[in-house]
Design a protein around this nucleic acid. Structure first.
Lengths: 281, 281
DNA sequence: TCTGAAATGGAATGTCTGCCTCATTTTTTA
DNA sequence: TAAAAAATGAGGCAGACATTCCATTTCAGA
């Protein structure tokens, strides 16, 4: 192997596309197959890949050598590395991006950081979400006459999207925002036949906590989305979800919370539809 | 292999964690290693993995058999499948999840769908974002005296998060919401020394378009986030970004828009800091 | 402490691997 | 068209592979 061997997948890909025209027929056949089915190259054996691509194993090795590798195995490493890297812990990537952004690597690095933070958060919640809690929360909310949505500051965008989605689904809801200063009155309307979605992360907005306390004392069931079991919200909640959002440049991602919020909202919509069908049927 | 063999990685993971306590010492050692280094299991050979984990190859096979597989190779398939799936086009996964949710596969499927939609959107924007546009937009916004943030309905949550973040960064800003009905007056205050971030997706909220038109006629530069070059927002904008958000169950993800919005916000913060440093120095 | 069972280590085994070689076919060049 | 060069196919080989087997150690219960 000389020094010009493509070591990463993108370079390899470019090299192949570049030489495509000049490659012999069978070699080109493999080249096309390799770019179309990179996963097969990564995991298959020379024999199995050759069979899938409709060539002899020896041709596969010649293809690798033509690209400067010393054999099929070296070529395969590049395809494996690609899967590894794509899949590599987002946490590590996030660390690297943070360092890069700190070093002043430009605005693209900041953007990449936010994307990575969002991806990390989605990954995390996807692994940790408790399905039973999800079912419980949806059942609880589906029974409510009015769903109150409670969140301030950083969590407020999520609340506003929930309110928007509930409205679209024609589910009666009330967003409790701080602007108008009428929160106490709004909260007082809630009865045990209603339900609340409350969202708050550390540092917990005192108003959110206070309103949650008041409303829970009125016997209104609460579904909480928060960030740890020590959260003051957790103690008032009938069901609560722990969502760990990764942060970047001092701002936490909302992507995981958003995904959960939308699942709750649409889940309630589905549940209501299927329940009313049953009643009618 | 009987029918209870874990076929997918998550089930396998759960099974291992479940049995962790009851496993023999060496087997447990491998179990821990496998969950910590899944990539090594996927790519390594029985000998190399055993060496890394500090056990004999035969133990590795016993581990696989204890889980119900007929050998190490079968176990390895699960770890390989995991990499394949993770890497497989999110679009395909999303399609599958939509079908699943339509078939009434429960609320977990809905949640997975929103997570996949968010991931797809993040992937897309990561590939397509124009770095030059990002720089232009940040320069433009960094020069503004006041940043007006303009968005309704579905885009409003993004606007509210931008406003929150700008406030945290002590950047003067004004969120133009529909609630108070004072939009016309607010818009009238904007001068060419200010700037606007406008966000709107199809179907474009008429109010957003109208306000954007008015404000651009006043000579105020606009940074737009929208979903196609046919968007009416694009024609008023000095810089505009095309963001394609995947949708699920009728609701589009906001994750890509959020990431871009935060990059703009924090980018402006950074730029202001470095500019003021230069002025002082 | 003794005894049987379970767990472990390590070498032996037969299969399958990648790669080389050489005969044959196809393409290029004069 | 003939000769040379390149490309291809297919069989064979050495080595690496997963797996099995058996001797030894560790553990549990009486």
């Amino acid at each position: 192997m000389d020094e010009r061997v493509p070591r990463d997948f993108e370079t390899l890909r470019a090299t192949i596309l570049d030489r495509r025209e000049t490659l012999p027929k069978r070699i080109a056949q493999i080249a096309a197959y390799a770019l179309d089915n990179p996963d097969d190259i990564a995991f298959g054996t020379a024999a199995s890949i050759a069979a899938s691509a409709g060539v002899q194993p020896s041709t596969l090795i010649r293809f690798a050598q033509q690209l400067g590798f010393d054999g099929f195995t070296s070529l395969q490493q590049v395809f494996r590395e690609r899967l590894r890297e794509r899949n590599s812990s987002y946490d590590e990537r996030l660390q690297a991006l943070r360092a890069k952004a700190d070093a002043g690597a430009g605005h693209r690095a900041i953007f990449d950081g936010f994307v990575a933070a969002a991806s990390t958060s989605l990954n995390d919640i996807s692994r940790t979400l408790d399905e039973a809690h999800l079912e419980d929360a949806i059942s609880l909310l589906a029974k409510a006459e009015t769903i109150y949505v409670l969140a301030k500051r950083r969590s407020y965008p999520v609340a506003s999207y929930i309110a928007y989605a509930l409205g679209k689904l024609k589910i009666r809801n009330q967003l409790i925002e701080s602007a108008a200063g009428l929160n106490a009155e709004m909260v007082a309307f809630a009865t045990p036949a209603d339900a609340v979605i409350a969202i708050s992360f550390s540092p917990y907005a005192p108003a959110t906590i206070e309103e949650a306390r008041t409303i829970s004392e009125q016997g209104v069931p609460i579904v909480a989305i928060t960030d740890s079991s020590f959260s003051p919200l957790a103690q008032f909640a009938s069901v609560w979800f722990e969502v760990a959002e990764a942060d970047f440049a001092g701002f936490r991602s909302l992507s995981a919370t958003m995904a959960l919020a939308m699942a709750l909202t649409v889940g309630v919509g589905e549940k209501r539809r299927s329940t009313s069908r049953k009643r009618k049927g």
